[in-house]
Design a protein around this nucleic acid. Structure first.
Length: 563
RNA sequence: GCCCCUGUAGCUCAGUGGAUAGAGCGUCGCCCUCCGAAGGCGAAUGCGGGUGUUCGAUUCACCCCAGGGGCGCCA
């Protein structure tokens, strides 16, 4: 399974690899070696480097530099792809590829278009990505919101490598928290609720209580407090979910599936799972409760409650039922996007899946760290609406969808994130999302200018472009562009969307440098009197725009024509 | 007490065991008759500490220090 075997630049790499491997064979017929090619950290070293000589030196008992020399002496580059080579440092072999080869590789960008960067490596495999799943007892806060763009982008990355992806929201609509929400609402409606029973506060509870009142009608709310809470709680949940759904939509997070915790209880699924666990003899009754007691690498000897002493199953029990259900729905892979506060929950669920006979390796959880909202140097803690946390909606309204997504996606999930409202709002180069979008807008304006002049941009690659695209910046940009599929592959493998964000920043920067050279040097201008060259340059910047769009699309960020 | 995450430039963060560790912001100095200056060029500053594995460690393992989060009947 070589996902990019048809890419021209992969052919460059494979050819080079073969040339080197053959040289090694000639120099050391007794040695079996497979060559690893990598991108040197410093471009001065060339386009590809290999540590083959360092690896081989032990086996052939010669110093690495001599081994490198022997390899080079046996090199035979029949296809003529190598421009130059050298030995460096302790014995690295560096190779420079003929520049024209990189420009040729751009043909792949234009021919694949929107698909450039995608593969079908995992075609036929289904994956469910659980994301957000915020409790419906309050508005979505910025911490939960990190899981939105993150999960969405991870889902897109998985789609890029061929998975069929379901984006799923798990609604925690049962348990003590719902009663608490009900009581909190009733308190706002002036009912005699004990202050200790009020779990939720803030403006939103007041708003919510009014909505609940409008929905139900005062006369329909029973006088008995417990009964009333039982009625009001679920109505509150439904209203909160409407809110959360709207917030997600505004962040361009779409879900294919909504699963309700309540269903596992009401349909008896949880009960059945508990019975199964009992049969597997991984439970014990103790202190009036039922405990899960597996002996495995996940939990060792820790115990967790499945059924509370009051007879109600715990969240954990429902979650086992939910995850077992995911396996039963035939997913090849399960990815959960959870806040770091759930870290203790991860081994529990994995242990339970193992106990039930499901492969725990198929379940993978991305834990993201919390978000701190800052305004310049000052930490923002309070929210008008929610009281003690900043809501996603407030940030969204203040900075907009694209900056929100980019800022949440630009950091590695495990890194603690400072969200700077001031920076995110800036319409200037200080703001990375504007910087990237600006590069796209600039290219678009070149195309607009070409259209005005009646020039039609070429749709496909033509071999004659090579002669018009020989500036060193053009070769460097071409290399960066054809690297995109590998960035996507790596980001998908590691479930790390921030790699795409960083790639886009690199790409934008490289382009801005290139673009700015045209200010004082006509060789860098796209549209000139020279028709053949104009066509080649339009092809070139068209490729650039395509890669940029594909990257932005993965992150769910718009690619504006003008700003 | 135990578990998870983090510690890299003044600040916010990248960095698949390899060569001289990178960006952005901030600071200082330059550049608009020009396909968009929402831009570009140049300068300065660094892997929390210690052991170990390795030819080679910012990267892996262990310990220590610091910050954040979590820890059997909340979800």
């Amino acid at each position: 399974m070589a996902p990019f075997k048809n890419c021209r630049w992969i052919m460059i790499k494979d050819s080079l690899k073969q040339v080197i491997e053959q040289a090694i064979k000639k120099a050391y017929p007794e040695i079996q070696a497979s060559v690893q090619l990598e991108k040197p950290s410093n471009p001065q070293f060339g386009d590809f480097a290999t540590n083959a000589a360092l690896v081989l030196s032990k086996g052939v008992k010669k110093n690495p530099r001599d081994v490198a020399q022997a390899i080079l002496q046996n090199l035979s580059d029949k296809e003529g792809i190598i421009e130059s080579f050298s030995i460096a440092g302790p014995g690295f072999l560096n190779f420079k590829i003929k520049p024209a080869k990189w420009i040729e590789a751009l043909g792949e960008v234009s021919s694949q278009g929107e698909r450039f960067g995608k593969t079908d490596a995992h075609k036929g495999e289904k994956v469910v990505v659980e994301l957000v799943s915020a409790n419906p007892t309050g508005p979505l806060h910025i911490g939960n919101a990190r899981g939105g763009p993150l999960g969405d982008a991870i889902a897109s990355l998985l789609e890029s490598v061929g998975y069929e992806v379901v984006r799923e929201y798990y609604v925690n609509d049962v348990g003590g928290q719902i009663d608490k929400l009900g009581l909190s609402v009733l308190y706002c409606l002036g009912r005699a609720v004990d202050k200790n029973d009020i779990g939720y506060q803030g403006e939103y509870v007041k708003e919510l209580s009014q909505s609940v009142l409008n929905d139900l009608g005062e006369q329909n709310i029973p006088p008995d407090l417990t009964e009333a809470a039982g009625m009001v709680g679920p109505v509150g949940v439904e209203l909160m979910m409407q809110d959360i759904r709207k917030d997600c939509e505004a962040m361009a997070i779409r879900f294919d599936s909504w699963v309700h915790e309540k269903d596992f209880l009401e349909k008896g699924t949880t009960q059945k799972i508990i019975e199964e666990l009992k049969k597997k003899k991984v439970t014990v009754e103790k202190e009036g409760a039922l405990w899960f007691v597996p002996q495995d690498e996940f939990l060792e000897d820790r115990e967790c409650v499945l059924v509370k002493s009051d007879g109600r199953p715990t969240y954990f029990a429902n979650d086992i039922a939910y995850h077992a259900d995911k396996y039963r729905r035939g997913f090849h892979r399960l990815v959960n996007i959870w806040g770091a506060n759930h870290h203790g929950h991860v081994p529990r669920v994995q242990a339970a899946m193992k106990a039930l006979g499901y492969d725990p390796e198929k379940l993978q959880t991305v834990l993201y760290q919390y978000v701190r909202v800052v305004r310049g140097k000052e930490t923002v803690k309070m929210s008008k609406r929610a009281g003690d946390f900043v809501t996603a909606r407030e940030v969204l309204d203040e900075v907009g969808k694209d900056p929100l997504r980019f800022f949440l996606l630009m950091r590695a999930p495990e890194s603690h994130l400072d969200f700077d409202l001031e920076l995110a709002k800036k319409h200037s180069a200080e703001n990375p999302v504007y910087y990237v979008q600006y590069a796209h807008a600039r290219i678009s304006s070149i195309f607009a200018k070409a259209a005005e002049a009646g020039i039609k941009p070429p749709a496909v690659y033509d071999a004659k472009y090579v002669g018009c695209l020989n500036l060193s910046e053009e070769v460097a940009l071409a290399q960066l562009m054809v690297d995109f599929p590998f960035v996507v592959e790596l980001a998908a493998e590691k479930l790390d969307p921030h790699r795409i964000a960083y790639y886009l920043l690199d790409l934008a920067r490289a382009f801005q440098h290139y673009y700015d050279r045209a200010r004082g040097d006509d060789r860098y201008r796209v549209i000139t009197e020279d028709k053949a060259r104009t066509e080649a340059k339009l092809f070139f910047v068209g490729c650039f725009r395509q890669v940029m769009r594909n990257g932005l699309a993965l992150l769910g960020i718009s690619a504006p024509e003008r700003m």
